[in-house]
Design a protein around this nucleic acid. Structure first.
Lengths: 229, 229
DNA sequence: GCATGTGAATAGATTCACAGCG
DNA sequence: CGCTGTGAATCTATTCACATGC
């Protein structure tokens, strides 16, 4: 009942876990296993079984009681829900160390993401070939987005340029942005924004390292203790 | 006060925002501003004012009613809480494209994080200098961690090596790990683990791009579902 | 019998709204 | 007054526990 009238609202936390299940399921399928229990999938994903079942129930009832989930079917349903059945051209803005690494990242292609363009504001970088693509000027951004139907923008610039680049991306029609710059960026409603910030991650780790997690207190960041696959 | 009897438990969500406040406050201090309101800090951090006040209240009562917070003081208190008053030597394992970029990332030094060593399993990479450091073999990991007092390990290897490297890091005494490899890694209790996963971030964006921000019947509800955080 | 699917219970985070105090 | 600090209300997420149905 995941379609038509009964349209379920999938919780944000669940959406964030679907890609993890997806990856685990693909590996499972590759190993030739046809069926998987919530228990097993949970172990592979590093969560507990109740969460897996609840998460999957938002997609519909794709399991079989007493048996488990059919791996291939589940992969398909999750991919469909995540929108991975279509192609998502990506533009990377800022071709410094990080942009370089991202451009060469294998795994883009793997699930329908394709680096369609590399853009940098620095004229000395233009025309350079990175990962088989020519670096283009920031002024070409709007055209590139329109012509290559770019739907996701990745910001890998210094912090000082991040907001400006985000504005340009939005103006060009991009509705999903992944920000690697260490800066708060704001976007209008209707545009999705996620951020990856190394400095923040390290500081969070620093906090938990400074605050002994021993018995009485918290389950810090993600102190998983579990078998793996 | 974070000491003495009243030991406050700082929520995980708050911990994750403290570095953002910290950054915003440092920029504010640099601009010569001495006092800041929760409203202003909230704007800089991309959250709302109530959240800022609640978050800061967990650290203690450092504001002045009718006035705001003294910027320098707040920077100091947050740094202390995050454990940024001390030095955190970091080891990066896996010197491929990403490890390379991370090694060259400026901003490590900025807040007490210092790349103390680079390690890679590939013998052809050994002895190479990256960001001024010599790449060392995986077999040197335990010694390096012990001798240079490494407290944080960054995994930038392929997925297939991630769990093994995590095990080695833990065995060597590292209690904080940041995993960039696209794999679920598990660590024993007492070890903090955070992950940064490009493929997952892209898939989450794909979901929201595929699921239009459904307009509800009632226009009073702001259907914002962004990602920050 | 056994693992899913899901209401109900619990825990956690956010927001509201206003008392309290400089 | 104005802005902080915080209980109370709300919203979101997780976990429990068991009825359900292959």
């Amino acid at each position: 009942m995941a379609d038509r009238a009964g349209q379920r609202r999938i919780p944000e936390a669940t959406v964030a876990r679907l890609p993890i299940y997806s990856r685990a399921l693909l590996e499972t399928a590759e190993a030739g296993v046809g069926t998987i229990s919530s228990e097993r999938l949970a172990a592979l994903a590093g969560v507990n079984a109740a969460k897996v079942r609840k998460d999957l129930s938002y997609l519909g009832s794709y399991g079989t009681r007493g048996v488990g989930y059919e791996v291939d079917h589940l992969v398909h349903e999750i991919s469909r829900e995540l929108g991975l059945t279509q192609d998502w051209p990506v533009v990377i803005v800022g071709i410094g160390n990080l942009g370089h690494a991202l451009a060469n990242y294998r795994g883009f292609g793997a699930r329908g993401f394709r680096v369609a363009a590399l853009v940098d504001a620095d004229p000395t970088k233009l025309e350079r070939k990175v990962a088989g693509l020519r670096v283009e000027g920031l002024d070409a951004l709007a055209d590139v987005v329109a012509q290559r139907d770019v739907s996701i923008g990745i910001i890998a610039t210094p912090a000082s340029a991040a907001q400006e680049v985000a504005d340009l991306l939005v103006e060009a029609g991009v509705r999903s942005i992944l920000n690697f710059a260490p800066a708060v960026v704001s976007v209008p409603e209707g545009v999705s924004l996620r951020k990856v910030d190394l400095a923040i991650e390290l500081q969070i780790l620093s906090f938990y390292q400074s605050h002994p997690p021993d018995r009485l207190v918290d389950e810090s960041t993600e102190t998983v203790r579990e078998a793996q696959g």
